[in-house]
Write a protein that binds this DNA or RNA. Sequence first.
DNA 1: ATCAACGTTTAA
DNA 2: TTAAACGTTGAT
Length: 767
Amino acid sequence: MALSLSGDDEEYDSESEQQRAANRPKPKVGTSAAIKLPSNRSSSGARRRRTRCRKCEACVRTECGECHFCKDMKKFGGPGRMKQSCIMRQCIAPVLPHTAVCVVCKEAGKEDTLEEEEEKFNFMLMECSICNEIVHPNCLKVNDASGVVNDELPNCWECPKCNHAGKSGKYASNLPGSLLREQKSLKEEGDASTAVKRRPDREETPRYRPEETLHRQPPLLSPSNLPRPRPEDKLRKKRKLFDDDEEEDLGVRKKEKSDDPYYSKLLHHIKTEEEDEDPYEEEDEEGRVPHFRGGVERRGRFGDPEDEADERDSRSSLLNPSVKTPFGDSDQSLCSSPQAGPSSEGGSETQEKGPRRKARRKRRLPNRELSRELSKALNQEIQKTEDCLANENRQPLKVEPQTENEEPQRLFRNELGDQRPHLKNKEMNGTPWELRHFYPSQITPLGFNRSTPTNRPVPPHSPPKCVQMERHVIRPPPISPPPDRLPLKDGKSHVIQREVWMKIFGYLTHQELCVCMRVCKTWNRWCCDKRLWTMIDLNRCTSITPLMLSGIIRRQPGSLDLSWTNISKKQLGWLINRLPGLRVLKLSGCSWAAVSALCTSSCPLLRTLDVQWVEGLKDAQMRDLLSPPTDNRPGQLDNRCKLRNVEDLRLAGLDITDTSLRLISRQMPSLSMLDLSYCNHINDQSVNLLTAAGTTTRDSLTDINLSVCNRVTDHSLNFFKRCGSICQIDLRFCKQVTRTACERFIAEMSVSVPFRLKEDKLLQKAS
DNA sequence: ATCAACGTTTAA
DNA sequence: TTAAACGTTGAT
C-alpha cells in the first residue's frame, strides 16, 4: 500500500492485496485467523501487531492523567474515542505477540531454552521488517546472506532473503503509533522518488564478509513444547548481543565525512533511530559523533579493522549504488518462501557461516522516519557542515565558555551575522546541546534580568521546524535505565551497580554529565536519567532545535528554562504537550506568540511561571493565559484555568494593569511569589487589589517584587500590612517610595511580625 | 467477554 | 499537515 518502495515490489503477488487493504476496510480477522496468516502473509503488508513488553519503565508506570490521550480516556472523564496509550506509557520495546510463531517450523521463540547468548539468536523469533515474515534464524536454510538486525525493535531484522535481494526496507517502526505520523507522507511519495531516496539506505546494509569465519550452527532443534520466550528475555538478549559493538555504528558515522546528501541524510536518520531505539541514546550521542573522531578510544570489537573495512565498504556502496557486493545482485527469491533464500553463491567461506553471525547488527530506520523524518534543509545543512563539525569538535572535552556573555554573543554572531547557515546548524545540531549550556548569572543589581525588549534576541533566520519533532517517537525516560551493571569487554559486569553510579553522577554538573555520556553507551543511558536532569536550562540558547526538544522530552524535567530563546509556539506547544510533569517553566524574553502555546488544555499544572519581558504580553494576552482552555475535547470535564496552581509568577517588564491583577488574584489561589518589577502600570491601586479583603492572594502572597515600579508610592505599604503571610516586599528603586515609609512599616509591623530593611526599600521578614 | 491500545483511515 | 477517530488485535 503505502509502501510500494520500488519497482521490485510489484513482483509481489500480494501487492494488489496491499492495495486493497489500503482502499477498503480490512475484513475482520480474529486472532486465530491472524495466526494462520503467515503462510500467505509472506511479503504481504500484514504484520503482526506488536504489543507492550510490559517490562519497561513506560509499561510499568501508571497513566499520567494529564496527557492528551489520558484526557481522552473514559477513566479520566474523556470520551474514549482516541483509544491511545498514555504518552508516558508508550512502550519502549514493543514485542511480538505471544501468538507469533515461526513461519517455517510453526513454533514460538525458543531462545530461553538456550544458554549461549549467540545461540539464542538463532532460536528467537525474528520478524522481517520488509517481508514481515517471522522466523527463527536457524530455520532459514540460507548460507550466504546476511540478515540485518534492527535493534530499534526487539525481534526485528531484515531477513537474509530481503537483505540479500536488496529490498528496500519498510522497516518496522511498530512503535506506539500515536507519534508516528509519517505514513501519509510516505504514501504520497511517488514510487520513483521513494526508491531513489531509499537507495542509500539500502546500500548502507552491511554485507557478509568472508573473513568472518564462524562455525556453523547446529541444526534446528525443534522442541515443540518449549515454554514461550518471555519478551524480556528477548530484549535482554538483544541488548547483550548488541552492546558489545554498540559503538560500531558510531564508528561508521564518525569516520565518514560526507558530501553525499544521501549519506548525510542517512547519517541523520541513524541518529534519529538511535533516539528511538532507546531514550537514553540521543542527541548527546549524536552530537558527539564528531567528537569521537578525536576523542574516546574505541574499545573491543569497535577497533576491529575488519569492521572498519566493512564500514568503508558500506560507505562506498552507499555513495555509489552501482557498487554491489558479490551477492547483492544474485537472483533471490523474494521471500515468497522461507526456504527460498540465497543458497550457496557465497562460495566456500559462506558455507561456514550460520545465520547467526551473519546477522550483522546494524541500526535500521523505520520507514517512516527514513522517508520524511527530517527536513531536507536540515539534512543539507548537516551535510555541508560535516567537515566543519569534524574540525570544531575535535576537542570533545573543551570547556564551554562560562561567562555571562560569551556564549550568547557567539550564538548571536552565528545567528545574525554569519551568512553560512550551515555553521549555525552545526552549532546547534552538531554539538551536544548540553555542552552548549551556560549558566549565566543574569542577576542585575536588582536581581532581575535587566534586558529590555530592545535587547531581545533576534530569532534566527529559519527557526527549526517543530514539525519534524512530530514525527519522532519520543518516549519517556525509564526511571532506572538498564543495564544494572556496566557490561565489560570480557562479558562480565562491572562490580559497581548502576544506582551507585547514579549517586556519583548526581554530583556532576550537566556539562560533566555530557562528558560522561560520551564514555560509553551504558553511561550515555545512565547519565540521561531524569533524576539527573530535573532542571534543564536553555536560557539564552537562542535557537531551539528539534534535537533539543526531543532531549528535553526524554529527560522529562520538572523545571525548564527557555528564557530568551526563539522557541516558537509550535515547539512550545509540542513540548508542554509531552511534559505533563513540568512544574517550573521559564519563558522570559520569549515572544507572546510562543507563550500563547500555554493556552491549551494540555498545559501542565505549573507551579512557577516566568513570563518576564515577554514581548506583546499585555492584559488581553494575560486574559487568554488565565482563561480556561478552549480546546477541551468534547466530554473533557476539566475546564479550569491551567495556571491555577501557580505559586510563583514572574511578570517583570510587562505592560499589564489592574485588569490582569484581578484575574491573577482570582485564578491563582496559591500565588505566593509575584514579581511585578518594571511594570510601569502597577500602582497603589494594584497593590490594593492584590491585598483586598476576600482575595486569596491577600493570604497567600509571601514575596512581592515591585522594584522599579514608579507608580507605587508609600501608600502601598499600608496595604501590605493586611497580608498575613508576607515575608518580603521589594520596593527598591521605586521613586515614590521613601525610606521613611519603610521604616514606619517596620515599626508598625514589629508588634506582630518583625521586619527589617535588607537593603534600601527592600523589606524582609526577620526570621 | 472485556479492556487496552496499535496502526490505519479520515477529518480538520 | 496534523490530530482525531476507529476497526481491530492481543491480553486477560
